[in-house]
């Protein structure tokens, strides 16, 4: 449904929509940095289209790209918050209604959008994490695998948030190198 193929004159789109069409790929990659998968990022791009369309085409937008990224950043922050809220809610629900059997919580169903990763691949992914230097591995584990924020990871490790970001950066580069196909 991308209006990129539309026969209308570019001028009638309004500057925001033109900018969105032009920057679509980088916006997608920006949003995907905080979504579970590319499909969720595509959904957010569709939301962005709707928001852009709602802005009056006659509105005087002087810096359309900046405005577009402001909208995208807000959308991303909202998305991150809503997924955090959803998992908090799930946690609450688990506390309220989950039966415990012999001290073990009954495992929840996997999320609908959970992608299955083949067993052999999981083994390789785990091996690569185990091979990281200890601090780097711990940061990656807490932040990425256990899903903690950078601030919480920093607290748990007793280092600065800046240091956590450095560890994560080095971990990604290291893992990408090791898992190159």
């Amino acid at each position: 449904m991308a209006p990129a193929g539309s026969t209308e004159q570019a001028g009638e789109h309004g500057p925001l929509l033109d900018a969105l069409i032009e920057k679509r790929e980088s916006l997608l990659l920006f949003l995907a940095s905080r979504t579970r998968c590319m499909a969720t990022a595509e959904d957010l791009i569709q939301d962005l289209y709707i928001k852009v369309a709602a802005v009056d085409a006659g509105a005087d937008v002087r810096a359309p790209v900046a405005m577009l990224y402001r909208m995208a950043a807000n959308l991303m922050v909202d998305h991150v918050r809503s997924t955090q809220r959803a998992s908090r809610r799930n946690g609450q629900w688990r506390m309220d209604t989950h039966a415990t059997v012999g001290g073990e919580d009954v495992a929840g169903e996997p999320a609908a959008d959970e992608v299955l990763v083949a067993k052999e691949r999981v083994h390789l992914l785990a091996e690569a994490v185990a091979a990281l230097p200890p601090k780097m591995g711990q940061a990656f584990r807490l932040h990425k695998l256990e899903g903690q924020s950078q601030a919480d990871t920093a607290r748990a490790m007793g280092v600065s948030v800046k240091m956590v970001e450095k560890h994560i950066q080095a971990a990604i580069a290291n893992l990408a190198q090791r898992l190159r196909t």
């Binding site: 990763v117 999981v122 083994h123 992914l125 785990a126 994490v129 990425k144 695998l145 893992l175 990408a176």
Partner: peptide, 22 residues
């Protein structure tokens, strides 16, 4: 960036399984 992102999403999908393996 696409390569880094693909790896990031893969770890997201396999997080629980990787933790068990580790």
């Amino acid at each position: 960036y696409r390569r880094a992102l693909a790896l990031w999403h893969e770890y997201e999908a396999a997080a629980e399984a990787v933790l068990v393996e580790l």
